[in-house]
Design a protein around this nucleic acid. Structure first.
Length: 577
RNA sequence: GUCCCCGUAGUUCAAUGGAUAGAACGCGAGCCUUCUAAGCCUGAGAUGGAGGUCCGAUUCCUCCCGGGGACACCA
């Protein structure tokens, strides 16, 4: 019976630890001992290793080497058939070496597995909020990072068997729309806006902020336009609706272009507006809020946080208010076990306050998580701001990526027809862009630089696509794979199987960190090892048919794992590039 | 001033508290009569500083230095 390395070793250790603590008659709960398995790229430290002896050494008042000795014996006494040997090294590490047979069994086991074997989460419901573009503003680089990260995160949870609700919290409410409407009324041109809505509205918005710097009266006007809207002003609402309609069209066009999965819920902030008076009343009767300088605030001294405002002195609501309303709505309607907010780190304070308020309302803190990520910054290392008009539209980047990809493909694949080249160029460009935003940790600041963004060498999506495509070609040429009867595997085959087996651990790691870069790193190193294998082991013209078939099986499983990875990252699998 | 992020090869990034700190780009040397050279192979090159906890620290704690962000009528 085949088990993945982690499970296999963990079981052996945990039996040994149980025996050991029974022997020592010590009041140590063997079940609570963290058993950690490391995969080793360097076989000098075993295929897997464990540091469990270190963590036991204090409780048992013994040296880690001594404990490792006992554990080794207790593991060996279980006569594990897939272990060639266990070694003690480095003052207490247990290093495990698998038998060759284990890896061939593993390969056969892999052929029987598919993505659905990893859906272990039993349909627990999770809401993942991401993208959240603002009406009347173009999506920019920041949204690109956010949307790609959120989409992939949702894919990951989906893959693990959760019931994912992809949530788009659209910014269609707030004082900013007061500003926009104010600007439109003053300087707007209906025809121009109809012709090029997003660009035109953005210009109005930027102009408003510029003029407001000279003339502070404008800010007041903008606030009152928003206030009017909250009170149901027909004209303003009509304008807003128009802007919303145009924006939605544009967002959807971009989502399709980027191959972002459809959202399950797309709800604008304005939706929550009617629920707010009741919520404020409740908070008042629960003595959560108090009046300060004419506004209503939630004091958060108990959390060591500055107070959070939930109603402005003119009676209008703000972001936080609608956030709370939205939370109540989501919990009541969907009862998720968790909500992930994929929002930039710049809003860390907002979310601290928001979560603190949620706790005051009795919502357990582990239900909410701010999946923050760092900014995309300019060459000066500083923020790109919409208000100052310093934005880089997502569309511009996508266009540039496609252009770059097209050039490379036109040059490298003169053998394929134009039309196909264009299709490949587009897919490669989008893949490349997505991978660029996923390959680094969330907290890495990204300096905006088209050139590095569009690099098609090294740790990039095209490299992964390329690796996949080369193996794919072999499989296509090989046709039906005969079940490998003679199973001759050499060291490099075993090493590759071992690498493939590591994939089961990567998803959990990515989930725990809410970051896809672990998966990227893994896929890249897998592809790297596979490429090396590709160069050194010609398959199709191998005279040894047993080895040939075994290797065909192997690369088929390799590509299967790559495909799973691509699916989660949201990048397209391409049979040829 | 308070709070949140971040300081690792020349550059851009990795490293659930583990053993010899890994890659990519760039730089130097090789490899296409053989399944796609968008590749492979090989060489040089790094933890901001000072303490502390620990068997063991790039990782955790404190302080300092440096960069970015956020701090009630924006979202």
């Amino acid at each position: 019976m085949f088990e993945f390395p982690k499970k296999y070793i963990t079981n052996l250790i945990s039996v040994a630890v149980k025996e050991f603590s029974k022997d020592k008659v010590l009041d140590v709960d063997a079940g609570s001992v963290p058993i950690e398995i490391d995969f080793k790229n360097n076989r000098a430290f075993g295929d897997c290793s464990s540091n469990v002896a270190f963590s036991l050494s204090k409780a048992f008042r013994m040296s880690s080497t001594e404990i490792a000795g006992y554990l080794k014996a207790l593991i060996e006494s279980q006569t594990p058939i897939f272990l060639e040997r266990v070694e003690i090294a480095g003052g207490g590490f247990l290093n495990f070496y698998f038998t060759t047979d284990y890896f061939s069994k593993a390969l056969f086991a892999l052929t029987k597995m598919s993505a659905k074997d990893f859906k272990t989460a039993k349909k627990e419901k999770i809401i993942i909020e991401y993208s959240s573009p603002n009406v009347a503003k173009p999506m920019h680089v920041g949204h690109l990072r956010n949307t790609i990260l959120g989409d992939a995160l949702a894919n990951l949870y989906d893959f693990l068997g959760y019931k994912v609700i992809r949530w788009n919290h659209i910014g269609d409410w707030g004082t900013q729309f007061g500003s926009l409407i104010c600007a439109y009324k003053k300087w707007g041109d209906k025809i121009k806006v109809e012709k090029n809505p997003i660009q035109e509205l953005l210009e109005l918005y930027v102009r408003f902020h510029k003029e407001a710097e000279q003339n502070p009266e404008l800010e007041k006007e903008s606030q009152s336009e928003f206030k009017k809207m909250e009170e149901g002003d027909k004209e303003n609402l009509k304008l807003l609706n128009w802007f919303l309609k145009e924006s939605t069209k544009e967002f959807n066009r971009l989502y399709r272009l980027l191959d972002i999965k459809k959202f399950d819920k797309e709800i604008g902030e304005s939706f929550y507006s009617p629920m707010i008076p009741k919520i404020i009343k409740e908070m008042e009767s629960d003595k959560m809020i108090k009046q300060s300088e004419g506004a209503w605030i939630v004091p958060l001294d108990a959390f060591n946080l500055p107070p959070a405002m939930i109603q402005k002195s003119d009676g209008a609501t703000i972001y936080m208010t609608r956030e709370i309303a939205s939370l109540k709505y989501r919990l009541a309607k969907y009862n998720p076990f968790k909500i992930l907010y994929v929002v930039g780190n710049e809003q860390a304070l907002h979310f601290q306050q928001f979560f603190a308020i949620a706790r005051l309302m009795g919502i357990p803190s582990e239900k909410l998580e701010h999946v923050k990520y760092e900014l995309i910054v300019g060459a000066d290392g500083k923020k790109l701001s919409t208000r100052e008009g310093k934005i880089i539209p997502a569309q511009e980047i996508i266009d540039e990526a496609i252009l770059t990809a097209q050039k490379i493909i036109d040059q490298k694949r003169k053998d394929v027809p134009q039309e196909k080249r264009e299709k490949i160029a587009k897919d490669i460009a989008i893949n490349s862009l997505k991978y660029f935003f996923l390959k680094d940790g969330r907290m890495t600041k990204i300096i905006f630089n088209l050139e590095s963004m569009l690099s098609f060498n090294g740790n990039s999506a095209p490299y992964l696509n390329y690796t996949y495509a080369r193996f794919s070609k072999i499989l296509k040429k090989a046709g039906r794979i005969k079940k490998a009867d003679v199973f001759l595997l050499e060291n490099k085959d075993l090493e590759l199987i071992k690498k493939i087996l590591e994939f089961e651990n990567v998803f959990e790691q990515s989930k725990n960190d809410s970051s896809l870069h672990h998966i990227c790193e893994y896929l890249f190193s897998l592809a790297n090892q596979a490429s090396s294998f590709y160069e050194s082991s010609p398959i199709l013209n191998d005279p040894d048919s047993g080895r040939k078939n075994a290797r065909l099986m192997l690369i088929k499983e390799l590509n299967k794992v790559l495909e799973i990875g691509f699916e989660i990252l949201g990048i397209k699998t391409l049979e040829e590039i």
